[in-house]
Design a protein around this nucleic acid. Structure first.
Lengths: 118, 118, 118, 118
DNA sequence: GTGGTCTAGACCACC
DNA sequence: GTGGTCTAGACCACA
């Protein structure tokens, strides 16, 4: 797995798990890849994966059964989507729009690119 | 001035100068706020402002007259706009669109908010 | 059966047996629930129950007849009570009191709740 | 500094900072001991202290100024006390009372010890 | 096998 | 100097 240098690895792993849950690869109530296994697969230290999993656990996206592993929490997909949507619309979008106006980029240009990447 | 913790302070100062140039507050050929004065105004260590100014200087947005101060370079506004436009369209936008699709946010929603903030 | 994540499962099972003996559900000299049956009832791996029973056996609370099962030892209830009382008064209570003083919670508050839960 | 083996060191450091804030040793808005310095003082790896501080930061007890250090957040003492009181009264006390009743320890005994440790 | 914690040491960006 | 992240490796309790 390739990581971008702009964001810390452990947060990229968090996003990776998000995507796996949203896509249905990790289903509600099912066990996700163990810390060590994930670390091996993506070529990263187990501590780093552990940090990501702990982060997800505190956000109630996954939970832990002692000695068994981490499991996808109830309504995880729903909550992830809700949280990300809220963050995007309230935090990111205003800044994006502000920047667009500053740079005099209008919606027509955006839409053109949007259609192209569909 | 309030700083976001997600981005380094010196880059937020760079953006602040960008905005001032684009808005015409700092005009071409004119002297901009001195390092010390700026540091005092926004409550930051002068070293940090110096770093921002050095960064802007390397991008040919401002230039320095020794012992006098920093001045807005020729075509600064034009160049800022060109650089930021390019970065926005090529680097940021693709990621924004990818995220929009994952969260099932369509252009109609964006446009609605865009109009509202006009 | 629901388990708290703060304490290990096998110790929670130990407490569960303690309570059953103190309440008289498991009587002196009688056979207690078998390892497999207990594991099935509370939804846990038999190894985990075995560990709890071994622990209880080492504390002379239960004893084993090979091929038959585990039985409540002589004076089990009396010994449990003695051990737990000692541990509570010498180890737990001092820390509880220390915390109460730090949080400015006085005995009147405690007593009020104590009466309510009688 | 001595640590108990029953609880993880990083949580004991969290408690240690709690106490320092409650006692007024770390005052609101003031900088607390830096990660490295704290690590040296209590004889622990800086990573462990970092973990404690991150934990406290997520609980809005302290906050970070980039490159400068960690500072005590607004109303930190008030919030710590509120959280700890709530946790004690709602989570710990019911279990304590349950155990007391099981062991037939009455309030008179507790009060006697409470007075003695004043 | 699982997670959880800790150490030692490194490198980085930032102030 | 500050925090932030990551690696490597170890040890532990637990299922």
């Amino acid at each position: 797995m390739e990581f971008k240098k702009e964001q810390s690895i452990y947060l990229q792993i968090v996003d990776f798990v998000h995507e796996n849950i949203l896509s249905g690869k990790f289903e509600e109530g099912e066990k996700i890849t163990s810390v060590r296994e994930m670390a091996g697969e993506i070529g990263v230290n187990p501590n780093t994966v552990m940090r990501s999993y702990t982060h997800l656990q505190e956000a109630d996206i996954i939970y832990n059964k002692r000695g068994i592993g981490f499991f996808v929490a109830k309504d995880a997909a729903k909550n992830i989507k809700k949280n990300l949507r809220h963050h995007f619309l309230k935090k990111e979008l205003p800044q994006i729009i502000k920047k667009m106006k500053m740079l005099e980029i209008d919606m027509a240009e955006i839409e053109k690119i949007y259609e192209k990447t569909t």
